[in-house]
């Protein structure tokens, strides 16, 4: 299965996620594509971005003059904060997550399945990144969104009947945004919410029985 020429750019994927955010909500962003979201959120939406290393109120990037070695996000990248931001220790940070105080989290993924399970922390014998905060986030945030490219570099579809890699969480994902569309895992299938312009169901590489249309 080759990747379609018709697909969303990373920024267009980000815009799909931003459409799902309610004004004033609290948002945790995972490492990778999700970090791009911070730069594209319109300030008037009043979103509070949380990073699990201990900051609420992330706002873009510093200048070479304002940069600080002690102000980073969970991806270890330098950040700046907006007025009203706060710093706290890791226990309070994960208490915000576990306690249901974070409205939305957006994570990257290696595989996601129709049951809403996510795999994003290791490929046995090949690659281990560790789960970091992902296992806490998938159970804590009210809305769990996974952002990933639809196909791997080897052309394998990442939306499966069941994940084959070790799980991050079982039945935890609410929405999936790929470069080809937006999907909801229903348990038995992937419900198509939206497809990128020009993309057809056949291009999704998902067996017919695993696809359903939004009601």
């Amino acid at each position: 299965m080759s990747v379609s020429k018709n697909h969303w750019s990373k920024n267009e994927m980000v815009d799909q996620v931003i459409e799902m955010l309610s004004d004033g909500s609290s948002l945790n962003l995972g490492i990778g594509i999700p970090t791009l979201i911070a730069q594209r959120i319109p300030p008037e939406k009043g979103i509070w971005i949380h990073s699990e290393n201990g900051v609420l109120g992330v706002a873009g990037r510093p200048t070479p003059q304002s940069v600080s070695a002690t102000l980073i996000n969970a991806g270890k990248e330098t950040i700046s904060v907006k007025k009203g931001a706060s710093y706290f220790d890791s226990s309070m940070s994960f208490g915000m997550i576990r306690g249901g105080h974070i409205d939305v989290c957006v994570l990257g993924g290696m595989q996601v399945d129709a049951e809403g399970s996510l795999a994003n922390w290791m490929i046995p014998g090949k690659k281990v990144t560790g789960m970091g905060g992902a296992m806490d986030l998938v159970h804590g945030a009210k809305l769990v969104i996974v952002m990933l490219t639809h196909f791997s570099k080897r052309g394998e579809v990442k939306l499966l009947h069941r994940c084959t890699l070790p799980l991050t969480g079982k039945g935890v994902v609410h929405k999936i945004v790929t470069d080809l569309g937006v999907f909801t895992p229903t348990g038995e299938s992937f419900q198509i919410e939206k497809l990128a312009p020009g993309v057809t169901e056949e291009q999704l590489g998902i067996p017919d029985g695993l696809l359903s249309l939004a009601k």
Partner: peptide
Amino acid sequence: QMLANEVEVTLVPQGTFSERIR
């Protein structure tokens, strides 16, 4: 060193890690 079994690594979800320490 983890993949070469030189260091025995126990991976703990970060929130569980911080809360176990707390």
